[in-house]
């Protein structure tokens, strides 16, 4: 499998690592300072809404990661360039972890807000199903021992899952209008104050930097795997 990466690109991926780690730590330090100390508590929810600063970025990136997963699978089908297959499976694990984080932090946020750990709300249910879509992709990838075949098969599954997301979203929304518990009002945030925007923005940036860091590390793992494989073949 030829990766079709130039040495310059590999060099950039390797050199960026220490810089990315440092900037992630700096961004999280600023983010924590703003989100825990500097921003005022919400006048309805009090301090509990500070969980938003980690919950919302993880939910965004969970969705973004699936878009990248499906997008690179489509590109893989068009170009057959193995780099897209590597991007897809590098982002899958990260996306699954962020889906898990957004589910757990959302549940912890829900307890003081709604009084219960879980609400069968359309958004939460869709997120839960997204988690299982990621899980299916990763399990399928692991269960096929021929990795060349596995990348072809899991690319197809990623696209099927992506086609299915709007259908799931639509049906879950429809189901939710039937079974909406009357006592629980939806968590709405009509206007976000500027003092909340700053910590949210910094935390989103920090989470993004972290995501890129791990993503580059995974790319390097794949590049080294490829190198090791080729050396063994030559022998």
């Amino acid at each position: 499998m030829n990766l079709r990466l130039t040495n310059k690109q590999i060099n950039i991926i390797e050199k960026a690592n220490p810089f990315l780690i440092v900037s992630t730590i700096v961004a999280f330090t600023f983010g924590l300072y703003f989100s825990l100390l500097q921003s005022p508590p919400d006048y309805i929810q009090g301090d509990s809404m500070r969980i938003m600063y980690i919950h919302v970025p993880s939910a965004w990136f969970a969705l973004m990661a699936y878009t990248i997963l499906a997008g690179s699978s489509v590109l893989w089908f068009i170009t057959r360039n193995p780099i897209f297959s590597i991007i897809a499976r590098s982002i899958a694990q990260i996306g699954m972890i962020f889906t898990l984080i957004s589910l757990v932090t959302g549940s912890i946020w829900g307890k003081p807000t709604w009084g219960v750990w879980w609400v069968w709300d359309a958004r939460l249910t869709s997120m839960l199903l997204l988690f299982f879509l990621y899980l299916a992709y990763i399990f399928l990838w692991q269960s096929i021992t021929n990795k060349d075949l596995a990348s072809k098969i899991s690319a197809a599954l990623a696209i099927v899952g992506f086609v299915n997301i709007p259908i799931i979203k639509f049906s879950v929304d429809w189901w939710n209008t039937l079974h909406q518990p009357a006592t629980i009002s939806k968590l709405s945030s009509p206007s976000i104050d500027i003092s909340m925007m700053v910590p949210l923005f910094i935390m989103t940036l920090a989470t993004f930097l972290f995501l890129v860091t791990v993503f580059f590390i995974r790319l390097r793992i794949e590049i080294l795997d490829n190198k090791i494989l080729r050396i063994r073949e030559v022998k």
Partner: peptide
């Protein structure tokens, strides 16, 4: 058809299929 080459575990297939069944 997709999982022909995967290990023969019905649970893996169930994890793939059930989210697609939900609608």
């Amino acid at each position: 058809a997709l999982t022909l080459g995967a290990k023969r575990t019905i649970f893996l297939k169930a994890i793939i299929v059930i989210p697609l069944f939900i609608p």
